[in-house]
């Protein structure tokens, strides 16, 4: 069963607990700048949008990686294998969502890995704007459609 982070921006209050939880879980510090999920703040519209990797099916980051360092686990999550990543950053320009980023400290790229099946952001979210659930839930289809528009050819079927 594939599971995904389903994000409902309508429920987000902009508290940014998810960013703190993520940076603490992944980097050991409470520093939103190191978070792999980011809350965009459109204060003029009173809207907040949490944003992170959608773990797309045939992921651009994965396909572009020259050393096969990005693998898919049993839950469909795309993981960066640090021992294979050389830090070339091709995935960071290939991902049309901009959700793989270079970490100059480690010389590797980082992305959301769903915390190995127990995402800290979803646990920290007080309003259920971020929930960890089956991919068939509403919201995922929209992302999938968006993903399809970006492809150079068709996704393999």
């Amino acid at each position: 069963m594939q599971r995904a982070l389903v994000i409902d921006p309508g429920k987000c209050t902009g508290c940014k607990q998810c960013e703190l939880a993520c940076s603490y879980e992944k980097e050991g510090v409470f520093n939103p700048a190191k978070s792999r999920i980011r809350v965009f703040d459109f204060h003029q519209n009173a809207r907040f949008v949490p944003y992170t990797c959608t773990q797309c099916d045939e992921a651009w980051c994965q396909q572009a990686c020259p050393t096969n360092a990005i693998t898919t686990d049993a839950f469909g999550v795309k993981n960066v294998n640090d021992s294979l990543c050389v830090g070339c950053k091709v995935c960071t320009i290939a991902c049309p969502f901009g959700t793989v980023n270079y970490n100059a400290t480690t010389g590797k790229v980082i992305k959301c890995d769903m915390c190995g099946g127990d995402p800290a952001c979803a646990k920290a979210c007080p309003t259920d704007a971020i929930v960890y659930t089956d991919v068939e839930q509403a919201g995922y289809d929209k992302m999938a459609a968006w993903a399809k528009r970006t492809d150079a050819g068709a996704q393999a079927n």
Binding site: K89, I93, C95, P96, G98, N101, A104, R149, T150
Partner: peptide
């Protein structure tokens, strides 16, 4: 600039 640079690809290609 290294954060979210892929978004440029996303906007151009879509």
């Amino acid at each position: 600039l290294t954060e979210h640079v892929g978004m440029m690809r996303g906007l151009i290609q879509t």
